[in-house]
Design a binder for these strands. Structure first.
Lengths: 252, 252
DNA sequence: GAATGTGAAGCTTTTCACAGCG
DNA sequence: CGCTGTGAAAAGCTTCACATTC
């Protein structure tokens, strides 16, 4: 049974709609790529295409940040990179701990995109004493007995849970008690956290099930369409993960 | 430049709203747990708590599937498990290929939740000849030269991309050309696909950036609240990251 | 009495379309 | 003249609250 159930006021955060926040990282990635190619400015149309959204949405999103574009010209790439980074809080350093160094935990530790954008793997933690001291991605794994101390010593406020489902809630409780206020959960479980703590989950099997749903529908339609030539007229479309709904957060 | 841009009619699928589809796997997981404990029936209130949503939403969601509950009593667990499984298309077998057997690909191959719910890892594919033949999670890795043949021989319609970002679009194109119509993308890139192909993305760094945004906001509020005792009255709240949009990760 | 199923209300998000600025 | 910024309309999702059914 769950404890502190977590509802969600669902409101926008500091004026920026949650849906917009969820897209800022996407824009940032596209802008970073342009920046690396030394492209000086970009139009909403071009940037939207690169990020996989439509241009009206992008302009509306940017309008929540301020008026950073120039009419008739577009947006200054470097300037936007900076503004979005700042808005997302990426101009500061975020020490992160990863708990559960199995296959997935190791993959995460090795993930390059981690270090690149303000995030730093401050520690790897596992419950298996045999893992202790073994380096993964160049970082020695520490035993979970020391979890609280590690969190405090490193001033960690973001924790990643990559343990088996059965251990996730207990790990979560300890992380929260030690001061972590944001959790990225890879374990297939619903976590209970007190108010003030954010949880986001990444769940492979849920994603697959959603794909299966649509896949099944396609098959059904084909059959209904009468066997042959059903394919030509089809215009299903797809976009990168529907997104849309969002996460949590907000103050009273 | 993107090619076949992918918009998305965004409409509900066969009468069931997208947001509801995204929650069905959550309900299914909670129901499966109840089923294993031989609980015969459950109320919307209880099930909602277990799934981390509110009960009105859950009832509305179920209403799209039909009237499967009994007033005054609740829902029959076994029956609901079956109905949701069927709706999601999990009563059939879905052969899946994983392309890119690095850290992450291996983690995915070993992921148990995979096999459990109708999904079967039909093949592991990697571009590195040195990997060929090596078993991962008991399945021998095959070279990507054979990708098309593997897809066709196994009747695969769902592909998982766990390659580095640079290789993702090319892999995606080959998968689609070979007949795959649903793709789960872990590479941090926007994929272009023709209409009729679904893409969902899972992106670690995007999730972290969203957490950082909220984390930063909390810090700002605390300061604004005047240093001390700001914590007590706070009622932040959080719920399990809503899924919805998503995005990418990658191996070395 | 208890709990579902659902119209209707309220929000949020997306899209449209165009005025306004460089 | 091109492209941003944004009111206003449309679509979608969530929550309310209660009639309905067992």
């Amino acid at each position: 049974m769950a404890t502190g159930r977590t509802h969600r006021p669902a409101t926008r955060s500091r004026g920026i709609p949650e849906a917009t926040v969820a897209r800022l990282p996407l824009y940032l990635r596209a802008l970073t790529a342009l920046s690396e190619r030394s492209v000086p400015t970009v139009s909403s149309e071009e940037l939207a295409a690169a990020a996989g959204v439509n241009s009206a949405k992008l302009r509306k999103d940017f309008s929540y940040l301020g008026s950073y574009g120039t009419r008739g010209v577009g947006y200054d790439v470097e300037y936007l990179v900076y503004q979005i980074s700042r808005e997302l809080g990426l101009t500061q350093d975020w020490p992160v701990v990863i708990v559960g160094i199995g296959n997935l935990g190791a993959a995460l530790a090795n993930y390059g995109g981690f270090a690149s954008r303000g995030f730093r793997v401050a520690a790897l933690i596992d419950a298996d004493p045999a893992m202790a001291g073994k380096p993964v991605a160049g970082i020695p794994v520490q035993h979970s007995d020391d979890l609280e101390r590690i969190i405090q010593d490193n001033g960690v406020s973001i924790g990643v849970i990559a343990t088996p489902a059965g251990a996730a809630q207990a790990v979560c409780d300890r992380l929260v008690a030690a001061g972590v206020t944001s959790i990225l959960n890879f374990a297939p479980t619903v976590l209970s956290v007190p108010d003030g703590v954010d949880v986001r989950k990444v769940d492979l099997s849920i994603e697959l099930q959603i794909l299966a749903f649509h896949e099944q529908r396609k098959a059904g339609e084909e059959a209904a369409a009468g066997g042959a030539q059903a394919t030509a007229a089809r215009s299903e479309s797809a976009d990168q993960g529907p997104d849309g709904d969002v996460p949590a957060v907000m103050p009273a």
